[in-house]
Design a protein around this nucleic acid. Structure first.
Lengths: 264, 264
DNA sequence: TGAATCTATTTATGATGATAAAATGAATAA
DNA sequence: TTATTCATTTTATCATCATAAATAGATTCA
């Protein structure tokens, strides 16, 4: 058969290793979305049209659309007016895909806190002035969850998750999407650590301490004091690190920035 | 027909919105990989067996495998001994998926540098003692690329990419995978910024300055001085920020940490 | 009129069978 | 020995049909 093969039509592709047709089609559609500047909810051609456009079968098109769907770029719906539509790539999807990564690349508490101490204070500072009433409500509720069974042993994991939830809510209010994304990643890494940890010794006092820090953070947020929010968060993270990270793993040379300096 | 539907068998799924079979199968396989502790290169059952196991058709299984392939969890090969194999989720794949995100969520230079000034100095410090001869060679070459046409106007984008390449090489030597991942993200964001920027005014002197900083970094790396590497990198990032970020966007309250403090 | 329900249509989704292409290893020819 | 060819295994792609889901519009009931 003498059908033109997409893989050989594009010179840039031909040089590289043989790719699957479905992947080539997926990339072409992906490029088209960006180059045409399509926005979320814009419609893509329907399956029969795509089959016509790319000269390949339905299953190939479907695999390509599946690929784009997993990437979070498109969403497929049935029914009249349905088909493939452009979707906004959500931060949640990226984080979800990331979680696979941690299964093969385990990260230690020490490694997590090496970054956490740097970015969480920045997060705390940056959300000041951006927290809505809804945010405050959610934050209060996260604190309430932590306070509920302060002594219960079985609730340890529950408390730790509520602790991370508190920080995730801050991310929601963060005006810098990249900072938010990075913080989400670190939180996701912590969640994995909680899941597989045998480090459940530090229960009661740790939770109380965290709640206290969170309340002090709330106070700083309410008063609109970014500098104080930064300081309190730094203390919070360092305090947690001192408990969570085994002393042996705590790098002596790891620096802590206590006070910010200004650009000249 | 009275076939058991995977979507209704799992109580946790039944409650939520209707999912596609292929997604349900993909999740089951994914969970199996993790729960069985499968390692990269371990084989998954072949398509006919999977069809048997899940009681669904070939196309459903193939979509599920496609999904896992896009996620980077498995790799499919043809031929004897082929089939689906577990693959390590690579940092490159995650970054690739992330790049979609930036098309809908644009990030400004100011936002990038808010994070960059925090983590790049940490990166520079952490790679000290972990750079191999190969790393040094690659770093030298990246510098050479930047030096090649210091005045050429058309090379501006080329130089900027070489500048980012230099930092990516450091990431390769970073012993903290999470820090590496975060730095890759920031670099990816910068690459996007370069791609769509109309900010090409600052060309010649900027490149020279960067090369100078890179050479000073190399010196610190060679002498094994982590503290100096940190300081030089901070100066490098701040210098770049002062040029790249419009003064109006430069938040007055953004802090700069010039000297590290120690844990008590 | 207004809301709820039915029905038809559109579209993706799932199933089946056949063919093509890639990878492996064995057999063969130089 | 070395390279080549060939058969085999397994996915990749194709083609077609049947099913399920979602919407729009008509219809019915209050």
């Amino acid at each position: 058969m003498n059908k033109p093969d997409i893989r050989t039509l594009d010179p840039s592709r031909r040089a590289s290793i043989k790719r699957k047709r479905s992947d080539a089609v997926a990339d072409l559609i992906r490029s088209h979305i960006f180059q045409a500047g399509l926005k979320p909810d814009d419609r893509l051609p329907q399956e029969p049209e795509l089959i016509e456009m790319f000269g390949c079968s339905r299953s190939t098109i479907r695999e390509a659309l599946k690929s784009l769907e997993v990437q979070g770029l498109v969403q497929n719906t049935t029914g009249p007016g349905g088909g493939a539509r452009v979707a906004p790539v959500s931060i949640n999807r990226i984080v979800g895909l990331l979680s696979n990564y941690f299964y093969f690349q385990s990260v230690s508490a020490a490694q997590i806190y090496q970054i956490r101490r740097l970015i969480e204070p920045e997060l705390a500072s940056s959300v000041v002035g951006h927290l809505t009433a809804l945010h405050f409500e959610a934050l209060e509720q996260a604190i309430a969850v932590q306070e509920h069974h302060p002594g219960g042993d079985a609730d340890w994991e529950h408390h730790r998750h509520a602790e991370i939830d508190f920080h995730d809510i801050l991310i929601d209010a963060c005006p810098n999407p990249l900072l938010g994304l990075v913080c989400r990643f670190v939180n996701e890494a912590i969640r994995h650590l909680i899941g597989r940890s045998g480090v459940q010794e530090f229960a009661a006092s740790f939770t109380c301490e965290n709640v206290d820090f969170h309340k002090r953070l709330m106070s700083a947020f309410r008063s609109g004091n970014a500098a104080r929010a930064r300081r309190v968060m730094l203390d919070h993270v360092l305090s947690a690190e001192a408990i969570v990270v085994p002393a042996a793993d705590r790098g002596i040379d790891q620096p802590v920035f206590r006070e910010p300096l200004r650009l000249d």
